[in-house]
Amino acid sequence: MATAAFSATSPTQSRPAHRHRPLPSLTRLRAIRCSSVSKVPAVTAAATADPSPVFRSVAAFAPATVANLGPGFDFLGCAVGGGLGDTVTVSVDSAVAPGTLSIADVSGCAAAAKLSRNPLWNCAGIAGIAAMRMLGVRSVGLSLSLHKGLPLGSGLGSSAASAAAAALAVSELFGGRLSPDELVLAGLESEKKVSGYHADNVGPSILGGFVLIRSYDPFEIIRLEFPADRELYFVLVGPEFEAPTKKMREALPADIPMKDHVRNSSQAAALVAAVLQGNVRVLGSAMSADWIVEPRRAPLIPGMVSVKKAAIDSGAFGCTISGAGPTAVAVTDDEEKGKEIGSRMVEAFLRDGNLKASVTVAKLDRVGARVTGSSAVQKNNQALISIRI
């Protein structure tokens, strides 16, 4: 099995480690902000003791995400439900050298077989190693199994979901010692290597809900709370077409006209306000108004222009490309209406793009990455206790 060794002697931070738990909400703004003084995850002050595992194994799930949301390129994103996401199981493994991580298995979608089992070139492996380094794990070796529920190159944060689930699983294996912002930073180590240093996928995949990345240096992320009493549905239409993030980033303009910058800035601000107010109509309208990225990427996805028109004509409040694509995302406040919109979008992909497509209507995932199961460490010859959540 492939393993990866690393040094656990990074400079420490003064922030105490604590268990990953639901984020609190601030009154009025309903946001949570978490910061780091560096782009590179460091070992926490409590991590230098080389923690002992609390569980024998932990399974964690991380949801799919919609990045950019139109005008919010690289700084806005949200998590979506519907059971879309990846699952990672991390186990203490005596066959793996202490202080290293091995990938034991990769399963799931048809393209999962293409993923490397070298943890230095696998999204889950990279994030898992980053979390181990943060914790200062040196005395035990870990094995990791990845189940891909998301297709590759779909525009739904496939790499970020793997990274988010891995980071959380490693943290929880040792008692949930990493804070939410540290988990995001661990996931960012993976994103940096695979698709670029952007947190608009891994941030919401870990924190849930909507997020705004205020700054990358120093890193600062704000969780935006969509009102619990408002309905919001995402119509996700994924064609049988792969749009590699690297290729889609290469299509972006090097220079941006001032008028387009002003347009996008105003729409991004309107989108944030709409999220906090629970105004789905304004949210959709702002999401549809990207003057910089979407015009360059849409022509690279067969039928995308017609799909967006079909969504709007069918009653969607807005439609754009999810992340780098090719998935198209529309929003509405009614589930049945969402199914109707999705059918029209699927038809448009086939008619004008010659692409078969599938549709999922999903709510906002407000939870983010979570533990789905664990096995307790065996003590005094007692049987292992399995827990499913």
Score class of each variant (00 low, 15 high):
Pro227Ile: 05
Pro53Glu: 00
Ala17Arg: 00
Pro41His: 04
Val170Phe: 02
Asp229Trp: 01
Ala111Phe: 01
Thr327Trp: 04
Gly208Ala: 07
Leu142Pro: 00
Ala269Met: 11
Met132Pro: 12
Arg344Gly: 07
Trp121Tyr: 03
Ser190Met: 07
Leu120Pro: 04
Thr327Pro: 06
Val202Gly: 06
Met248Ile: 02
Ala289Trp: 03
Ser195Cys: 14
Val88Asn: 04
Pro302Gly: 09
Arg214Pro: 11
Ser102Pro: 06
Val37Phe: 13
Val235Gly: 09
Ser7Asp: 10
Pro302Lys: 11
Tyr233Arg: 13
Ile312Met: 14
Met134Trp: 04
Lys308Thr: 04
Arg366Cys: 01
Ser139Tyr: 00
Ala4Thr: 14
Ala324Ile: 03
Ser154Cys: 13
Ser36Lys: 12
Ile103Ser: 01
Ala243Cys: 09
Arg297His: 03
Arg133Gly: 02
Ser285Lys: 15
Pro227Phe: 12
Leu271Glu: 04
Ile312Ala: 11
Ala166Thr: 12
Arg263Met: 10
Arg56Gly: 06
Ile126Asn: 02
Thr27His: 14
Ile321Leu: 13
Asn264Trp: 00
Lys363Val: 07
Met287Cys: 07
Leu29Arg: 15
His20Leu: 14
Pro257Lys: 02
Phe234Asn: 03
Ser116Pro: 06
Asn380Met: 08
Pro22Gln: 02
Ile301Phe: 07
Ile341Trp: 01
Val293Ala: 12
Pro22Ile: 01
Ala46Glu: 05
Gly82Pro: 06
His18Leu: 03
Val140Phe: 03
Asp181Met: 13
Met134Asp: 01
Gly128His: 00
Phe75Val: 13
Gly323Glu: 05
Arg223Thr: 09
Pro24Lys: 06
Phe75Thr: 08
Tyr197Trp: 13
Gly284Ala: 15
Leu26Arg: 13
Asn122Leu: 01
Val305Tyr: 08
Met345Trp: 06
Ile385Thr: 06
Leu183His: 03
Ala130Phe: 00
Ala311Ser: 13
Ala324Lys: 06
Val37Gly: 15
Ile129Tyr: 00
Ala112His: 01
Thr87Glu: 06
Gly238Tyr: 02
Asp200Ser: 14
Ser386Met: 05
Ser38Asp: 09
Ser314Leu: 14
Gly72Phe: 08
Gly338Glu: 03
Pro151Val: 10
Glu336Arg: 12
Asp181His: 13
Arg19Glu: 02
Arg230Trp: 05
Pro51Ile: 06
Ala64Tyr: 05
Leu156Val: 05
His261Leu: 14
Ala8Thr: 14
Ala324Phe: 08
Thr9Asp: 05
Ala273Ser: 15
Asn68Gly: 10
Thr27Leu: 14
Thr12Arg: 05
Val37Met: 15
Ser266Ile: 15
Asp313Gln: 11
Ser162Gln: 11
Leu185Asn: 06
Asp365Trp: 02
Pro302Cys: 07
Pro63Met: 10
Ser205Ala: 15
Leu76Pro: 08
Lys337Gly: 11
Gln277Gly: 11
Ala45Arg: 12
Ala130Pro: 03
Arg297Asp: 02
Leu152Met: 11
Ala104Tyr: 01
His198Trp: 08
Phe55Tyr: 12
Leu135Gly: 01
Ala269Tyr: 01
Ser195Tyr: 07
Val140Gln: 02
Val329Trp: 11
Ala273Arg: 09
Arg138Ser: 09
Ala286Thr: 15
Ser154Met: 09
Leu283Lys: 10
Val359Arg: 07
